[in-house]
């Protein structure tokens, strides 16, 4: 007798994505949230040379037209020249507006008083300086800063709090890194950008995956299954090692605070966002 049987508990394809659907959806999102709700037409994207900001710029250019997209390159002295070149490729491909602001003097202006700051602190100062530039230029250009953070780095806490996560609109925040890569290929982002190892470009040669201790193709499905509600045992039965599941879980469970607003002492029955609840678009 023929038997049909499936013992695997994990559903297949947790990262499956139809890039054409997502492109259409996110372009509608950008147009609707920016033009209809805020009455604005222009955006500013901090273009790092990496795939997240490239995809964001492509989506914005298609939703709003390239003339309404200001791509801001903000290199520091140690930033890789390759990153700057890759950012230039995006600007050229899209025909959008471009501005390059060196942040070295601003960053070093502060860090001269903290010469012992380690790499992490220096990286955070650079990320926050970039947001300072982006928000200031947004006033000048009458546009809105657009976030470029993806779901993987948000869940792993792999970003600078109140820097990368500050722009009021974020098209990619519900897409894992693997899905961003799929979307990038669909949009025609230059191959060099899609295929290079992802890096925050804060310390030369240091990639996301070497710093995190796990690759995105391993971390993303683990994150996806954990968010669906599957436990460690189910993931281990599904072929993920105890060590890698533990690593991802630790990063996820120790960074909930980074995905929230600051903790405010509640003293009354009208505490904001506790009792006084109004939606962001009201």
């Amino acid at each position: 007798m023929k038997t049909f049987r499936l013992d695997d508990i994990l559903p297949p394809g947790p990262l499956a994505i139809d890039p054409a659907l997502v492109e259409h959806w996110l372009e509608r999102f950008i147009a609707d949230e920016l033009v209809r709700r805020r009455g604005m037409r222009a955006v500013l994207v901090g273009l790092s040379g990496g795939v997240d900001s490239a995809v964001t710029a492509y989506l914005c250019a298609r939703a709003l037209g390239p003339d309404n997209v200001h791509c801001i390159r903000m290199p520091y002295a140690t930033s890789s020249p390759e990153s700057l070149a890759h950012a230039a490729m995006v600007v050229k491909a899209l025909g959008c507006r471009e501005r390059t602001i060196e942040i070295t003097a601003a960053v070093d202006g502060y860090l001269q008083f903290e010469p012992d700051a380690d790499g992490r602190r220096r990286g955070n100062v650079m990320a926050r300086t970039r947001m300072l530039v982006l928000f200031d230029l947004s006033q000048k250009y009458g546009g809105l800063p657009i976030g470029t953070g993806n779901k993987s780095e948000r869940l792993l806490g792999y970003f600078t709090w109140h820097a990368d996560d500050t722009p009021p609109l974020n098209p990619l925040g519900d897409l894992f890194k693997m899905q961003v890569w799929a979307l990038a290929r669909h949009l025609g982002v230059p191959r060099e950008i899609v295929e290079k190892a992802p890096t925050a470009d804060l310390v030369r040669g240091l990639t996301d995956e070497s710093e995190l201790g796990i690759s995105y193709p391993r971390a993303d499905p683990i994150l996806a299954y954990l968010l669906m509600g599957y436990h460690q045992e189910a993931l281990e039965r599904g072929g993920y090692s105890a060590a890698e599941v533990q690593l991802v879980r630790h990063r996820l469970e120790s960074t909930h605070w980074k995905r929230h607003q600051p903790t405010t002492a509640m003293l009354t029955n009208t505490a904001i966002n506790e009792f006084y609840l109004r939606p962001v678009d009201y």
């Binding site: 394809g13 139809d18 659907l21 959806w25 899905q179």
Partner: peptide, 10 residues
């Protein structure tokens, strides 16, 4: 509110 991006349709 739409959810689900795995296929060509939401």
């Amino acid at each position: 509110p739409g959810r689900g991006i795995a296929g060509p349709e939401i």
